Structure formats: C-alpha cells, structure tokens
Computed example of a mutant assay.
Amino acid sequence: MRIVVALFALLTFGSVWSATGVAFVHGTGNQSDAYNDYWTGDMVNSVRQGLPNSSNYVVINCQFEEYMWTSGAAGCLAGQLHNFITSRGIDDLVVITHSNGGNVMRWILSNPTWDSRYPAIIDSIRWVNAVAPSSLGTPLADAVMQGNVFEASLGWLLGYQSDAVRMQQQSWMQSYNANWLLGTAGRPSLPVGFWNVVGTDVKSGIFSGNAYCGGYQYQVGLEITQNWLDDCSDGFLECSSQDGAGSLWFYDHWRTNSDRVLSHHQSRRDCFGLDTILRNDL
C-alpha cells in the first residue's frame, strides 16, 4: 500500500518539482534540545541522509507535557512545522513521530480548522511515520496518575503527573479518539497516511545482544514495567495502542537487523537498522 501511495505521488507531482523534507517530533516532555536529548545526533543524521538535500530537516522542541491541543503542544508544533515548510519551500514532508508526538501530530491532522497554519502543513505532508505511537493510551499513565510506584520508576520516560500523562490514560484517549481525533476504528480516516512502527518486546538479559543498544539501564526499567502490560508491548505501550490509529507499517522484528525487537527507548535510537529503514523511506 505504501508503495502504491509513493508511486501515485511521484506520477502526480513529479520528484523534480518536489522539495522533500523530514521532521522529527519527540514524545512526552518539555524539550529544548531534542536533537541530543531525545533522538541523538546519530539517529537524526543517519535518517536525514536519505533526503535529496540532507539539510532539509527539522527537530521539533515543544512542551509536550501539556494537553495536545494547547499552544505549547500543537501550537508549538504547528509553528515550527509551518516555519520549516515555508522557509525551505518544502512541499513533500515526511513526519517521524515517537510516542505521544503521534497524538499531537494527529490532533493537527484531525482538526484542520483549529489553526490557520494547519491546512498548509497538512497539504505538505506525504505521510507520517509514527514510531511507537500512544494512540490508545497506556495503563502506565493510569498508574502514574494514581500515584503508585510507577510515578517514581517512570519519571525518566513518561514524566510525572503532567497534563500529557493525564491525557494518555486509556479512558481519556478513548474519549479523544471518539470525539476529536481521526484514524481509529469506526472514525473517519486521517487526511494523510499515518503508518505505525510497533515495538513488540523488551530484552534485558545480561547476555542478550538486544539489551545494550540505547543503554542497558533503560532496558531493565522497561522490562519491569512490561509486567503490567500485555505480552506484546515495548515496555511502555501495548502493541494494540501503537497500532490503534492509522495503518500498520511493520512490527519491529519484521524488518530490523537479525529480527531484533525494539523497546520504547530503542525506537527513538539508531538501533538494529531502524534508522536505515526510516532513511530509505525518504
């Protein structure tokens, strides 16, 4: 399906006339240096080499501790994306989101009349590659809001009792999906492709070659939290949530090097060839 869409875009617009760009949209948190602190330069610089002009990229830094529709979240994202596409003349934009960044991006795609900048952004997007999106929320957000042990153990990954964490509770996301967001079952489709990369497991065994990419300590933490999730999860999100909106692109082990799995932390790193997959997609 993705190949058909790409061929249609090529035949319709012609690659000669398109200026292709890529945007990296981080997940929950208040980021001021997502290039280094969230994605790392190794990931960003590897992926952007797939562009005809490798300088046509932007790394978003926004206040994704807020509700998705606020000025600090969707408003900030819209401002940075709109400035990028207008200043660079980008008319073929691939957006790469991670985790809650998929929700903020989906808000823009679902509510084009909310902000005057949204239509131009939507018109410029080829598709969104949503890596481990929290489209249906996570039980761990419910646990954090209840103030139990997860609040301390997940601070490095999810944050604490912020509005963004509150928003990602499962019942809250169910309400948003039913009333404000497009792309989930029974709702109208999103105006552009929203393609999900799903992380299916966490490996933290000391002798596991899967455990060390991105930092061993993070794998240990996610292995613990995975005990409160379905068998198919990346330690933070269940697979059903990651594939809850839009369309499935692939489960991690379908395409990664040596059929490796991607934890929620590893799916924002250049682990097991993920960066090459995203680069080739540009």
Rank of each mutant, 00 (worst) to 15 (best):
M1C: 00
I3W: 05
V5N: 13
F8Q: 09
L11T: 07
F13S: 04
S15T: 09
V16W: 08
V22S: 10
V22F: 03
V22W: 01
A23K: 06
H26K: 05
T28N: 04
G29T: 07
Q31C: 13
A34Y: 11
Y35N: 03
Y38F: 12
W39T: 10
G41S: 02
N45E: 14
V47E: 01
Q49C: 07
L51I: 10
P52K: 02
Y57P: 10
V59C: 13
N61T: 05
C62I: 07
Q63P: 09
E66K: 15
E66A: 10
Y67A: 12
Y67S: 12
W69D: 11
S71A: 09
G72P: 00
A74I: 09
G75C: 03
G75H: 00
T86K: 13
S87Y: 04
R88L: 15
V94H: 03
N100L: 14
G101L: 12
G101F: 06
N103M: 13
V104E: 08
M105V: 11
N111Q: 02
T113Q: 14
W114Y: 15
S116P: 06
S116M: 09
P119C: 07
A120L: 04
A120Y: 05
I121D: 05
I121Q: 09
I122R: 12
D123R: 11
D123C: 02
D123N: 13
D123S: 14
N129K: 08
V131M: 06
S134F: 07
G137Q: 01
G137Y: 03
Q146M: 10
Q146K: 13
Q146E: 14
G147F: 07
F150H: 01
A152F: 15
A152I: 13
L154V: 02
L154I: 02
L157N: 07
Q161H: 10
S162V: 13
V165E: 03
M167V: 09
M167Q: 12
S171P: 01
M173E: 14
S175Y: 03
Y176M: 13
N177K: 02
A178D: 07
A178Y: 01
W180C: 00
T184Y: 00
V192W: 09
G193H: 06
V198I: 08
T200V: 06
D201T: 03
S204G: 07
G205K: 06
I206D: 15
G209V: 02
Y212C: 09
Y216G: 08
Q219R: 05
L229H: 03
L229D: 03
C232A: 05
S233D: 04
E238Y: 04
C239K: 05
S240V: 11
S241P: 14
D243N: 15
H253M: 04
T256G: 09
R260Q: 11
V261M: 07
D270A: 10
C271Y: 01
F272C: 11
L274Y: 08
L278I: 07
R279S: 11
